[in-house]
Every structure is written in C-alpha cells, then in structure tokens.
Design a protein around this nucleic acid. Structure first.
Length: 957
RNA sequence: GCGCGCGUGGCGGAAUGGCAGACGCGCCAGACUUAGGAUCUGGUCCCGAAAGGGUUGGAGGUUCAAGUCCUCUCGCGCGCACCA
C-alpha cells in the first residue's frame, strides 16, 4: 500500500480529534443522579440536570462488546470488526438522543500470563498490565467512543472483590424447587427444624441414616454434622469428590466445556478422568430456565440452537428393572418407553456402581479386564473407537417389567456414566447403537414399532410409528401410535411404581475450581469439627477481597495441589483453619463484568441499585428531546426511540463464546435476579455474533500461515477511519469474510472524495507544501491552511439535491437499525458520487451528510464539520451529539415515476407515468407502449396485473 | 450420523415475491499530466452485428410474477457428536 499521494491528511486529523474527545470527555456516560458539566455536549443536548432525580432522564442504550483477553500479540484487523460495529451504533444512538453506555475492559485473568510467569518468574500481574497497556493503546488509536472512565479489569482487587462476593451469594443460596428460584440458605434451615411440619423434607435427606425421629435422638454434635452436610449438599456452590478432567500438562482440572475431543481446549493437551475434591456450581438447577428463557431474547437461531443442544433437554421415563436372584434394581432412562417390549438386553456403563455387585463369578475376570481397558482410554480414544462396539456380558439377568422376560445385562463403553442413570435398556430393533451392538454380539432383535410406510425396513427404524408385539399380561400398547403408546405405558409404570416420567439434561454442573495462581481466590476456609471431620466455611463479606499471596514459584504441583498451597503463611490462619487454595476459573470474572460497568467505581456494592435499574431495566418510551441547534425542519428521528429493552440492548462478540461464557453469565444473572440484586431475568437482550475476518488467502489468520495483518498496519497507511469503514464494508456483520488490501484502498479513496467534496484543492496544495517545511509537532496547526470548497454556499438546496440527501438519510437510518453497515456505507458512497457533480453545494445538505457520516468515519466528519461551520461562521456544537436528521418522505416524491412493464413476466419496457396514476391509467399506458405492442399484437390478453407504483404485467395466450 | 446456516459476475457482495448484479475491488478505454501505482470521465454477466435470447449450484413445483416460497438433490461452512 502507501502508494501515491495521501488522499487526505488523516495523520493529522485523527490524533487531533482523539485528543479532543479525550480532553472534553465527550463520550462519558452519565448515571442517574449525576450532574453534568454545563459545557459538556450531553448537557447542551439534554440539559445539565437531565440525569437528576425528578427530571425524566433520556432513554438509555447499553451497547456492549465482549471484552478481550489482552494477549501479548496485540490486535489484528479481525479484532476491531465487532468493536467498529458497536461504535457505529453507539454514535448513531447518541445522535438519536439516547444516553448511550459503551464501555470497555479487560478479561485479564488467564493462563498465558501465568505460563509466562512459570517460565520467567515474572509476576503475572506485570505481564497482564503490560498487555493491557498495549491493547488499550491500539484500541484507543481506532477512535472508539468508549467511556474510559468505566474501564475495568477482572484482575483488579476492587473488581474481583465483587466476583468473590457473588460467589458467596451462590455459596449461601440453594435452589428451591417449590418457589422455582434461588433462595438464601437460611430459608432451607427451616427445613431442618424439628417441627413436625417439615418431616416430609427429611425423607429425601441422604445424610440421615434413618428418620426424623432418629435425628431427634442424636447428640448435638451429630446433629450439627448432619445439619452442615445437609446444607452443604443444597448450596449452589458445593464441594464434590467426583471424577473430573485432569490435564497433566496444564497441571489443572478443566470444565467439561474446556475439553474438546478429549483434549484441553487451551493447548490441545490430553486429559484424563481423575477423582478430586472440587468446587462445583449447580447450573443444572437452572437448566429449564436457561432453556425456556431463550425464547424471550433476540439472539440468532443458530446461537440459541447451540445453547439448546448444550443444555440437551430430553423427555422420557425412568424404568426400574429387577435383577434375577438379587435385591438390586437398575433404573434406566429412555426417551422411548413405548419400545419397552423390545428391550432384549440391558447395558450398564463400565463405571456403573452396581457392576461389581451383579457380575457372576464366571464373568468377573472378563468384566474387570474390560473395565481396566476402558479406564485407560482417554475420552478421545473412546470416541475414536466408537465405530466398533465393544462390551462384556456380566452373567446377570434383569427382568423386563412388562412381560417378565429374562434379559442379559452387559457392560459397554457406549453407555455413558455421566448421562441419565448410566444404564440403558437396549432396544436393538429401534435404536441404531443397540442395533449395531446386538448384531455384533448376536443378541435378539425384536420388532415393536411398525413404520408408517410398510416399505420401510423396521430393522433400526428409530422414528415414530405404531406399536406392535407389545402386549403383556398386564398392559398392552399394541396398535397405538408412538406418542400415545408412550403416554399409556408411562402412566402404567407410574401406577405400578415401576417408573416415572422424567426429564433429562445433558448439562452438567459447572466445575468451578482451578489449580492455578492467576485467578480469584475463594473466600472460603476449612476447619475441623471436634470429631475431626473437615468442613468449609465462608469468610465474612467484610474481609473481601481475598488477595492471592505473593509467590516466587507459580508452577502447579504434580499432585494437583494448587500453587497457592505453597504460601504456608497465607494458607494457615491464626485459629488453625486453612484457606481454600484453589482459584476460580477465568469465566468467573466475565460472568458479571457487564454489571460492573454500570457503576464501575462503586465501593459499596457490585452495582448500585439506581444505576442497575436505569441501564438494565426496561423503560417506557420517552419524549424526544429537541435540541436548540437542530434544524427546524429536521426533527430527531423517532424510529430508534421506541421503548428501550430490558438488559443489555446489544451485545456483540464472536461465536467462540456461544456456549461457555454466554451460558455461565446467564446462569449467574438468573441467580442474582432470583436473589433480588438485578431487575431482569436475562442479561443480554439482543446478541449478534460477528463473523470471523479471514486473511487475504481466505484462510483463518494465524502466525503459522503468515497471513496476520496487525491493526497498526492499515492505521498507518490509510488511517483508522478507512480501516473502520472497510471493516464494515466487507460484508454483513455476521458473515465470515476475507480481508482485502485493495478493498481498503477503495474505501480510503471514498474518504478522499469526501475530503475533496468539502475542501478547496488550491489550499490543499499550499498545505502540502507547508507540511514539508514545518517540524512535526506544529503540523497540526497547518490544517487551518485548508480552506472550504468555494462551491459550498449557504443557499437553498434544489429539489433534486434534497432528494439525493433524503434517499441517503432513509437508507442509512434503516440500515443502521438493521445492522446492515455495508449497505449503509454504499448509500453514503452514492450520495458522494452524486454530490461531486453539483456545481453549488448547499451547506444544509452537506451538514446533514456529515451527521450521517459521523458514526462511520468520525474523525474526518468532525474535521469537516468544524471547517464547514467555522468558515461560514455558523455556531455549532459537538458533532457527536448533533441530532440525527429526519427523513422526509415528501421530498422523495416526484411527479413522474418509472414503472416496469412485463409481458408474461418478462420485462419489455419501462414507462414513465404520473406518480398518482390509477390502475386504469397504468394499464392503458402499458398497452400503449410500442415495445409492449410487439409482444401482445395478435394475442389474446388473458389477464393484466397492475401493482400500483410497482409494475404492470400483461399475461397473453 | 444429528442440528443450524449458506450457494448470485473474475472477486467482496446488493436485491419488503415485482426492472438480478446496488456499492466497492479488478479489468478495458479516454482525459489531465514530464510521469502515474494520483485524480476525473466512460465502459465492464454470457451468446448475438442487431433485434432478441440466456442467466442466481442442479431438477421439479406454487404464482400473473421466484435469487427470494415449497419438495428433492449436489456442494460448502459452523456446531454437537455413542446424550439412550
């Protein structure tokens, strides 16, 4: 690039306006109750007291970017795509009269800084701070209108104090199924009361060996133990000793979500199952709400679908099977209880707790050999070998409850311990996997469903049909269509106490602890009771934040003991209790950062109530604030001023967070909502995923391919306005699209044309000569040498000019509302192409154009806005708050319009008719057309379709 | 395998069921220039001299009218993946 002459002095304009915005705090967003400085443009537009209690505050618009993890590599041109889109919207909404919240911060806890610390001994905080500085410099060089006064970093103790605080809320709450919401644990304590009315609650308590009466007879100490275990078993944050994903290389456990194809998502290292004591968050309690509330938010279908798949709800039944010559019973989960008569064998997962108990002596060797083999396999191997089914017979038999048949019990690794009950009834005739397995091991295959189309083979037919061969001594569903058969047999099972309707989810509880240094410490300590039982206890809120200890060695220990355990002084408290040494996962900080922005400096709460209600709560439509500056004719556009939405109005980020971050954040938000801390059940009302920007070779940008384009490159060559414009001009926001250096030059040329539309070319030559002689620091002043284009005059626009302008206003406005930035930019180009041909360029028209351009190319627009008004001595306020021009449809109407005429659907002519022509006139004009006559001559006209103001179509035979 | 999305010029992409290819890139020609990799003007889907005909991955269908709606099919991308 860098070819030829510079299109316009962006190198002077861009720093100039960035400094201006910074100095004037132009993009500061004001909270309810705040007084606004008199000279601030927000005050000029809305009044200095507009946010003070008693006055109606302007409607809010909260537009949020997914905050980045500041890596050492800096930004490439893919990063600012989403940021540019949100910035354009933020500037547009400001122009419409909204109070816009547009913040930025840093998701700064994370592995890379820690790994660097392990290698070099440099404290992760230092690395993190340096990376934040780099990211901030680069992001600021792009001229985004963030309110930097609300900047936050998840690693800041003033921030993670509240992350820990929210953890305490989770710890001190349980999900109450009757109220269907998170509830302070104090309320559950009632259920431990010895009052008779709570007796029924005791039945389900796994910590009571006997009954409520047994409890009343216990010693105080025993009661305390039971009480504690009962509560701990209910908390939303709980400790569990269960097999978790352990990654040797990373030296930590990982969440299900961080394990992809049996490897760590970060680094791609192998992971193994290992039983460890871990903190879990009970996200499964919210499975149903997380699923159904998707219907209340405006996200893309594909994204919602990804979340639905992840939550994985399926309805079915649990059925209990007796085991022959044994007291044990095995419960299976099935979505097809109607196929119960076709269950010809049963399969347990190798990890099922009953395997050893039911295995017969003869089979013991084979079973234990198989179990060992399976345990050795990583998850990756287990899925890779999935094509070939394997398994071993236990020697035991179960009794099919519907027909009393004896069916063999196998174990096989195609049955997962982690889903359903870890056991299945196998119906080989109507399940693909069971069919494969039965075929391989020669197990009987019995048809129980007849496909609707008799030509379809019933072997392996898994869809709905009609039940057949399904009659037992007590129940028959033969002849019933699948849905009814399901219903009938489930009802029968329930009546017999053999089973029950069940809903199952794929979603697992969230493994919430990590063996790392660079994360939030848990506000938890461990103690022992007099009997020596270890138990955990929350630290009081008053001691938050719990800071991590200083260390010199950040390496995890080989045993899985977290690095924090090395700080013996820190771990052990004076009273002998010890601190929890795990830290929270990186996701914790990003679960609520959007709430901290609302009130980022609040020392007393994670967010102030008033601020939360204003920015997150839904509000009713607001009256439009009329600015004294606004053109009398041009009122603020009202299209964007409908009632504001609950939650974040627009959230933009990459698909990589489609399940993890977005599911976790929704979960936390729902808990906070249930506990009364926030006012909406969902955090993000509208969400858009920007598509990835590929390299010029159409490949994903990566160091190894050498196709990475750092943002600094185009910023140097063509300026940030051109970069911003091209980011949006490439194509629709959601689409994956390749970068194009040539394309950048195209929009750069466009900005050059805009420049030349406004400035006097002679003065520009003068400027360029002067620039070569003046030292760098003083060059900014040279911009004053550039004079306004003499063709710009304060005259009334012609109807044609107004039409060009208003066509552009309409298109840009509608496209911005629909996030169609690429076509909005093309509308601006069309305007400029047209305006270049005008001999006289009316100020009022160009002024409105600059307001339209401002969101896209704010630096250039500010410079020209300033020049335009100064040169003509028109008083003006900041462009950033200039009211958006209103489109006037009357100006687009002309006396005549062109109407296409088709014969048999084929275009034959375009006729000019008066705009108000009625159907008869249109038809007559169409028939009169010479070209049309050629095609209808000698033929019968069967029908004439006239669409007013659209077209005429003549059907002939 | 299942789910979601997408197939339009040489390229990125436009088209509330109503003139396919806006806008930009590239390319061609011209103007201005010592020069042009700056700028400006014009041209640029295919066949055809023209009239006209053809054209939105392919095949059907609905409709006066289909890139757009429906069915089947092929190809690509993303997600999930033995979820009972």
């Amino acid at each position: 690039m860098a070819s030829g002459r510079r299109q316009y002095p962006f190198h002077l304009i861009e720093p100039k306006w960035q400094q201006f915005w910074e100095k004037q705090q132009v993009f500061r967003a004001f909270n309810p109750g705040e007084e606004i400085p008199e000279n601030h443009p927000f005050a000029e537009r809305h009044g200095a007291d507009s946010m003070v209690a008693g006055r109606k505050a302007p409607p809010k618009f909260y537009i949020l970017d997914m905050f980045p993890y500041p890596s050492g590599a800096g930004l490439h041109v893919g990063h600012p795509e989403g940021y540019t889109a949100t910035d354009i919207l933020a500037r547009y909404k400001r122009a419409l009269g909204f109070n816009v919240l547009h913040p930025m911060g840093w998701d700064a806890f994370g592995l890379p800084a820690e790994q660097y610390a392990v290698k070099t001994g440099q404290h992760p905080r230092k690395t993190t701070d340096e990376n934040i500085a780099t990211f901030k410099r680069q992001i600021q060089s792009l001229g985004f209108s963030y309110d930097w006064s609300r900047e936050l970093a998840t690693t800041d103790p003033d921030y993670f104090k509240w992350t820990q605080w929210i953890f305490l809320k989770l710890y001190n709450s349980y999900f109450d199924p009757e109220w269907n919401k998170a509830t302070p644990i104090e309320f559950f304590k009632d259920a431990l009361s010895e009052q008779p009315k709570f007796k029924n609650k005791w039945k389900e308590n796994p910590f009571l060996a006997g009954t409520h009466d047994a409890y009343t007879k216990m010693s105080a100490q025993e009661k305390e133990l039971v009480r504690r275990r009962t509560l701990d078993n209910k908390r939303l944050a709980y400790v569990s000793e269960q097999p978790v994903w352990w990654c040797e290389q990373l030296g930590t456990v990982l969440a299900n979500e961080e394990v992809v194809d049996g490897k760590s998502e970060v680094g791609g290292f192998p992971v193994v199952r290992k039983p460890m004591r871990q903190w879990m968050l009970r996200i499964t309690a919210y499975a149903e709400k997380l699923l159904t509330d998707l219907d209340t938010i405006d996200w893309s279908d594909s994204l919602k679908e990804m979340q639905r798949n992840w939550i994985g709800r399926s309805e079915g039944a649990e059925v209990e099977f007796r085991i022959q010559n044994s007291e044990f019973r095995i419960t299976v989960f099935t979505t097809r209880p109607d196929t119960l008569f076709g269950a010809t064998y049963m399969v347990l997962s190798p990890e099922h707790r009953l395997v050893d108990q039911i295995t017969t002596a003869e089979q013991r060797g084979a079973i234990s050999k198989y179990k060992t083999e399976v345990a050795k396999k990583s998850d990756l191997e287990r899925t890779e070998l999935a094509k070939e089914k394997s398994g071993v017979f236990t020697g035991a038999y179960a009794i099919n409850p519907v027909n009393g048949q004896k069916i063999p019990i196998w174990i096989a690794d195609y049955v997962l311990a982690s889903y359903g009950t870890g056991a299945i009834m196998a119906v080989p005739a109507h399940d693909t996997r069971d069919f494969e397995f039965a075929t391989k091991f020669n197990l009987p295959i019995v048809q129980v469903v007849q496909p609707p189309d008799p030509k379809i083979d019933w072997h392996g037919f898994v869809e709905d049909g009609t039940s057949v061969n399904s009659t037992g001594p007590e129940i028959s569903i033969t002849g019933l269509p699948t849905p009814e058969a399901k219903k009938k047999i489930t009802t029968w099972l329930e009546a017999k106490g053999l089973g029950k309707r069940t809903v199952n989810f794929k979603l697992r509880d969230w493994l919430f602890s990590r063996q790392r240094y660079w994360g939030e410490p848990f506000p938890i300590i461990w103690k022992r009771d007099p009997a020596g039982n270890l138990y955990h206890e929350a630290l009081p809120e008053s001691v938050l934040p719990v800071l991590p200890p200083e260390l010199t060695d950040y390496k995890p220990t080989a045993t899985g003991e977290p690095p924090l355990a090395r700080a013996k002084d820190w771990v052990t408290l004076p009273d002998g209790s010890t601190r929890e040494t795990n830290t929270m996962p990186q996701w914790a900080g990003s679960c609520w950062y959007y709430l901290r922005y609302l009130d980022a400096k609040n020392p007393n709460a994670f967010v102030g109530k008033e601020a939360e209600q204003y920015w997150m709560g839904a509000s009713s439509p607001q009256p439009i604030v009329e600015s004294p500056q606004s053109d009398s004719k041009l009122k603020t556009q009202d299209s964007g001023l409908k009632s504001t939405t609950p939650g974040v109005d627009l959230y933009v980020g990459g698909t990589e967070h489609a399940v993890l971050h977005l599911l976790y954040a929704r979960f936390w938000h729902k808990v906070l909502f249930d506990l009364g801390y926030v006012s909406t059940p969902e955090p993000f009302f509208k969400l858009v995923n920007q598509g990835m920007v590929l390299g010029e070779d159409n490949q994903k940008m990566s160091k190894s391919r050498g196709n990475v384009i750092p943002v600094d490159e185009p910023v140097q060559e063509v300026g940030t306005d051109a970069l911003r414009l091209f980011e949006m001009f490439m194509g629709p926001l959601e689409m994956v699209k390749p970068w194009s250096t040539k394309g950048v030059e195209g929009v750069y040329r466009f900005l050059g044309r805009v420049w030349r539309l406004f400035v006097d070319e002679n003065s520009e030559t003068e400027f360029e000569q002067a620039e070569t002689t003046v030292e760098t620091q003083r060059r900014g002043e040279l911009l004053n040498l550039i004079k306004l284009n003499p063709a710009i005059r304060d005259v009334a626009p012609t109807p044609a000019q107004l039409k060009t302008l208003h066509t552009c206003i309409k298109k840009v406005t509608e496209d911005l509302d629909g996030l169609r930035f690429n076509t909005a930019i093309s509308a601006l180009m069309v305007f400029v192409n047209e305006a270049m041909t005008w001999k006289t360029k009316p100020v009022s028209v160009l002024r409105d154009f600059l307001i339209l351009l401002q969101p896209f190319a704010p630096h250039l627009a500010e410079e020209l806005w300033d020049k335009l008004h100064s040169a003509l001595r028109i008083p003006h306020s900041a462009l950033s708050y200039a009211p958006w021009p209103k489109f006037d449809p009357a100006l687009l109407v002309e006396s005549e319009m062109e109407i296409p005429v088709q014969v048999n659907g084929k275009l034959r002519d375009v006729i000019k008719v008066p705009v108000n022509a009625d159907n008869a006139t249109l038809e007559a004009a169409a028939r009169a057309s010479e070209k049309v006559q050629q095609f209808i001559a000698g033929k019968t006209i069967k029908k004439v379709i006239v669409v007013p103001k659209k077209l005429v179509n003549i059907a002939v035979g």
